[in-house]
Computed example of a mutant assay.
Amino acid sequence: MNKSKQPTIKEIAKRLKISTSTVSRALNNHPSIGLVTTMRVKKLAEELNYEPNRTAIFFKQRKTFTIGVILPSLSEAFFSAAISEIENYANSKNYTVILGQSLDDPERELKIINTMKTHRVDGIILSSAKNTREFDYIDVLKNAGIPIVFFDCVPDIPNINAIVSNLKTGMLQAIDTFVSCGHQSIAFINGPGHLPASKEREGAFIKGLTNNNIPINRDYIVYTDLSEQGNEDAIIKLVNLIDRPSAVVSFNDYVTLDAMNAVRKKGLIVNQDIYFISYANYPIWKYMENPPMASIEQLPGEQGAKASQMLFDLIDINVEGDSDDKSAIQGQKIVLESKLVNQHL
Rank of each mutant, 00 (worst) to 15 (best):
L167I: 03
L35F: 08
I98M: 15
F188R: 01
N290T: 14
Q330H: 15
M39D: 12
G331T: 12
L340Y: 09
A294Y: 04
L209A: 13
G170W: 08
L345T: 14
T37S: 02
E47W: 08
I70L: 11
I315D: 06
I189K: 05
V255K: 06
N131V: 11
L27K: 09
M260C: 13
R218Y: 12
V36A: 13
V41E: 03
A259F: 09
M116T: 03
S75N: 11
I125D: 00
D313I: 03
N114E: 15
S338Y: 07
L268A: 12
Y89A: 01
H344T: 13
V23L: 10
L299C: 06
P292R: 11
T96V: 13
E51Y: 09
T132I: 13
Y137A: 01
K339P: 02
N88L: 06
E337C: 05
D139T: 10
D105S: 04
I189W: 02
P292D: 11
R25Y: 11
V222F: 06
S338N: 08
L44E: 01
V164F: 04
D152A: 01
K168L: 00
E51T: 15
F178K: 08
V319C: 07
T256A: 14
F79P: 03
I57N: 01
S250K: 03
P291S: 08
H119Y: 10
V249M: 12
N29G: 04
I206L: 13
K199H: 06
L99E: 04
A234H: 06
A56L: 02
T96P: 00
Y137G: 03
E76C: 00
G193Y: 09
L126G: 06
K130P: 02
L16T: 05
A262F: 10
V335K: 09
T256G: 04
S327D: 14
R25Q: 13
V341M: 12
V140G: 00
D122R: 03
A90G: 00
I163D: 03
N190D: 12
N114C: 01
I67L: 00
Y287Q: 08
T224Q: 07
F312G: 04
M116E: 02
N2V: 10
N261G: 14
M171W: 04
M39Q: 15
V23A: 05
I189M: 08
Q173A: 14
V164W: 07
E134P: 02
T256Q: 12
R40Y: 09
I138G: 01
S185Q: 15
R108L: 09
A162S: 15
S21H: 10
I163M: 07
L345S: 14
P7S: 02
S73V: 00
T55S: 12
Y287S: 11
